[in-house]
């Protein structure tokens, strides 16, 4: 077990290294740079811009900037935002809650609805419900998220006036109800794709379990269909989903980014786009590393959990 852990851990570190290098290089490939935001300000002369460039350490060779950044990161210093000068972790922390709220609520929706559709589809295989669910899932995977959001805004905000077109809450009204009111549309939009994915996985997983011997035995023993499902199917099927959850994370983050853009949600996706727009390298790199670490952690935990439950996996 220890060897397995060390192996996985070292692989994860290599992965983070690769992510940071790719991110840093790609980010610096973008022309413009952090000073472009002053490009239209007639009072910022070339001298001023050169001075800022030097103060921000941007006139050094790229490899030196990278090593400096990476060395600080290893020591726990994520750097400071170019924009507001605050420590990167603070900046991320300030936007984390909004994103967690959005991702959390949409994940709850996705898992609840997806699991239900999946199991029902599997137990009522080839029924009309199953067929519709399959088609629906495929269509859901095909709708551009941002467009779905736009249509939602058009219908529910502009036409019907039921739901707000954006923001997390109304200024001066921090009530839970107000938050929920603002949360409905973005979390459904974000959940759509994941309902589709979860339901498909759940269906396959349930089918796998149903066909196994012990379920047949249980059924033969006269246990009710419902109890069999609850006890064996769901329990067993949820296992591979832990792995899925880890791998879903980047796409959930991407989805959150798109959704936050459309609904002006003050979360990490918004922060990411803004920071990219201002070439706020420390924050963008911070967000990349943050999400990469999350992904790696999820995968690691999933690996470990699976390995504990099913020791054969360790060998492969």
């Amino acid at each position: 077990m220890r060897g397995f852990l060390l192996n996985r851990l070292s692989q994860s570190l290599v992965l983070l290294l690769i992510v940071s290098v790719i991110g840093f290089v790609v980010l610096n490939l973008i022309p413009g740079g952090p000073l472009a935001q002053f490009g239209l300000d007639p009072s910022m002369t070339q001298d001023d811009l050169n001075r800022l460039k030097e103060q921000l350490g941007l006139n050094r060779p790229l490899w030196m900037q990278y090593l400096d950044w990476a060395w600080r990161l290893v020591q726990g210093d994520w750097g400071h935002s170019f924009r507001d000068g605050a420590p990167v972790l603070d900046v991320i922390g300030r936007h984390l809650v909004a994103t967690l709220l959005l991702m959390g609520s949409s994940t709850v929706i996705a898992i609840a609805v997806g699991t239900w559709i999946g199991i029902r589809g599997a137990t009522h295989r080839y029924s009309v419900f199953d067929y519709l669910a399959t088609v629906g899932a495929m269509v859901a995977l095909s709708i551009p998220t941002f467009w779905f959001g736009l249509v939602g805004i058009y219908v529910f905000s502009l036409r019907l006036g039921w739901l707000p077109a954006g923001n997390m809450y109304t200024i001066g009204d921090g009530s839970v109800l107000n938050h929920i009111h603002h949360l409905i549309m973005p979390s459904i939009v974000l959940a759509l794709v994941h309902v589709a994915i979860w339901s498909r996985y759940m269906r396959t997983a349930t089918l796998d379990v149903i066909s196994q011997e012990f379920v047949k035995t249980a059924r033969a023993k006269g246990l009710s269909e419902r109890r069999i499902l609850m006890k064996h199917v769901v329990g067993n099927a949820l296992l591979p989903m832990i792995t899925l959850a880890g791998m879903q994370l980047p796409s959930v983050l991407t989805g959150a980014l798109v959704t936050e853009t459309v609904f002006t949600w003050p979360g990490m996706g918004r922060l990411f786009l803004d920071s990219l727009g201002y070439s706020d390298y420390p924050v963008v790199m911070g967000l990349l590393m943050f999400s990469a670490i999350l992904v790696v952690l999820c995968n690691l935990i999933a690996d470990i959990v699976v390995a504990i439950i099913d020791p054969r996996i360790r060998l492969s």
């Binding site: 991110g23 413009g32 991407t254 990219l276 990349l288």
Partner: peptide, 22 residues
């Protein structure tokens, strides 16, 4: 394959936007 993993752990939109801007 580690490089593949590396690319996969990005929110894909980052790479796309950054490359498109570049």
């Amino acid at each position: 394959m580690r490089t593949v993993d590396g690319f996969l752990s990005f929110p894909s939109i980052f790479l796309v936007l950054a490359l498109a801007a570049a």
